[in-house]
Nucleic acid binder design. Structure first.
Lengths: 116, 116
DNA sequence: ACTCGATATTGACAGCCGTCGATATTCGGT
DNA sequence: ACCGAATATCGACGGCTGTCAATATCGAGT
């Protein structure tokens, strides 16, 4: 069985010049768009804000399912997307998986959108 | 012929608390996601950055088609999306349509993503 | 070892979205 | 009035994505 290594930009976030400074190249635009796309979903925004508002900016999956009102696989899916794009980090403790806000990630795209 | 009035949130942008402060409600999340989704496309990011880097942060469609390398209808479509979500404003002068950066729009989502 | 509970993965399906060609509209010039 | 140029709209098509049910995995306790 071959280990199918998914290449994801865990590096997260920005990538480039402040957006309004100089024209974005095709490659940079693609990268930035992929990161922003991870935020462009109501469920993921809610998950992110719930995690961010939790103690230590950390929450386990079990605490997230009920608030967003979706199935457990769907929540797991969204958490994966947020983690792979660098907005959350995952740590497993016992049977539970805790997701924590990656502090710099939001600041970074925010700074990219700003004038500079 | 009936005038089909499309109701779009020209108001643009943010909508709510700073995202990491308190859990986002379903309605707010939907609104914010719709705005962010307008940014979550490489072509639209490039268009936005080209416009922003132009003289007076303004450019006509004819100047935008060649740089992004897509068809004129597609470029028009993207400009419409950006305009309807409040990131650009449109003004027609003669045969030409000029799109201009809406100054506060980017700042507003940036501020929403930031901690507070 | 077995079971149970928490989470992740898979497969399928519907709806959305980016793209294009064709066409409509609108405006300036002749 | 007509023609041509710039832009917008329409219709279609393929690919992506959010969702779920079913199933797999993994860890803890008995």
């Amino acid at each position: 069985m071959v280990a199918m290594l998914e290449v994801t930009d865990v590096s997260a976030a920005a990538c480039c010049a402040p957006l309004v400074r100089e024209p974005l190249g095709a490659v940079d635009a693609e990268r930035l768009a992929r990161t922003i796309k991870a935020l462009a979903d109501p469920t993921r925004l809610r998950l992110l804000s719930i995690v961010a508002a939790s103690e230590g900016q950390e929450a386990c999956v079990c605490d997230l399912i009920e608030p967003v009102g979706l199935s457990q696989p769907t929540v797991s899916h969204h958490l994966k997307v947020l983690t792979e794009s660098g907005f959350l980090t995952r740590s497993k403790r016992g049977t539970w998986a805790y997701y924590k806000l990656a502090p710099a990630s939001l600041d970074e795209i925010a700074r990219t959108l700003l004038a500079g």
